[in-house]
């Protein structure tokens, strides 16, 4: 056997193994999605969106409370987290640049990004829930916002730095003050990237359960009161899934399906925006 033949055979073996590994890894993903779709679609019905939670055995039970609660929690977290994240990222890219402070903030933000989310839940329990004396939607939203901030901060920082320096100089050369350069030129240039970061940040916190367990807690009834405990899809799913009742378990599957589609959708939209931005 010549050296070339040997090399071709080794190449084929390596290629075979890596393809097989990729297939195995992807198989689990599609398995999970497949089970979710089968069980989830089965449990879907209009009543899910019309009724709130009820004791097991009642026909008129649904997930309206958890769906609305989830939207309120994630929406509130977005309102808190997105402005903070974008402004902090703007500071890093446009003002802090390579200063010591900017590097320290970047490092801390990276550490925060990998912090276990239950630790953030415990933190919010200590600083918000304990002083208030009870669980609340505010506490849940703050916990989610804290998880969201480092993601948005980092993508904003990265995306703003991708805007060419000459574009900033050109705006300055026309007599633009710095805040105008950032608002009119830099943000516009990084629009797609920042939007993607925001969507991925929302998708990330949308699936969080641990930080909500002892912040917004849970409730089986419909509420829009931000000062009270608020149900979420994730915690509701957890409670229903571990219950011994068939109809609750069905609702748990439905919740899992809706949540997965929501997050999958956000991720796909985020990536499409980024792709469209790159193609220009």
């Amino acid at each position: 056997m010549t050296a070339t033949q040997k090399r071709i055979i080794i190449n084929r073996i390596a290629l075979g193994f890596s393809t097989l590994s990729a297939i195995i890894a992807l198989a689990f993903l599609f398995w999970i999605l497949g089970v979710l779709v089968m069980k989830g679609v089965d449990s879907l019905s209009w009543s899910i969106f019309m009724f709130e939670g009820s004791p097991p055995g009642y026909a008129e039970s649904g997930l309206k409370h958890a769906l609305v609660g989830q939207l309120i929690l994630v929406g509130l977290a977005t309102l808190i987290g997105v402005p903070l994240g974008i402004m902090a990222g703007t500071y890093l890219s446009e003002y802090g640049k390579n200063s010591k402070l900017a590097h320290t903030i970047r490092d801390i933000s990276d550490i925060m990004m990998s912090a276990p989310s239950i630790v953030i839940g415990a933190f919010v329990y200590a600083v918000v829930v304990m002083p208030m004396g009870h669980f609340s939607a505010w506490a849940g939203a703050i916990a989610l916002a804290i998880i969201m901030i480092p993601i948005i901060l980092r993508t904003t920082d990265d995306m703003l730095q991708l805007v060419p320096g000459t574009l900033r100089e050109a705006a300055f050369a026309l007599g633009a003050p710095k805040y105008k350069v950032i608002m009119d030129v830099v943000y516009r240039g990084a629009k797609a990237g920042i939007l993607t970061g925001v969507l991925l940040g929302i998708a990330r916190v949308g699936g969080e359960t641990a930080p909500l367990l002892f912040t917004s807690f849970n409730d089986n009834f419909f509420t829009t009161d931000l000062n009270e405990a608020m149900p979420s899809l994730t915690v509701t799913m957890f409670n229903y899934a571990i219950s011994p009742y068939d109809d609750w378990q069905q609702l748990g599957w439905a919740a899992a399906f809706i949540l997965s589609m929501f997050i999958l959708g956000l991720n796909i939209v985020g990536r499409l925006i980024l792709l469209a931005g790159k193609r220009k």
Partner: peptide, 16 residues
């Protein structure tokens, strides 16, 4: 800078 304008090496069209 409104009195003394500048044209750069690479075109710098703003994203608008």
């Amino acid at each position: 800078r409104t009195k003394i304008g500048m044209i750069f090496q690479k075109p710098t069209a703003f994203p608008m």
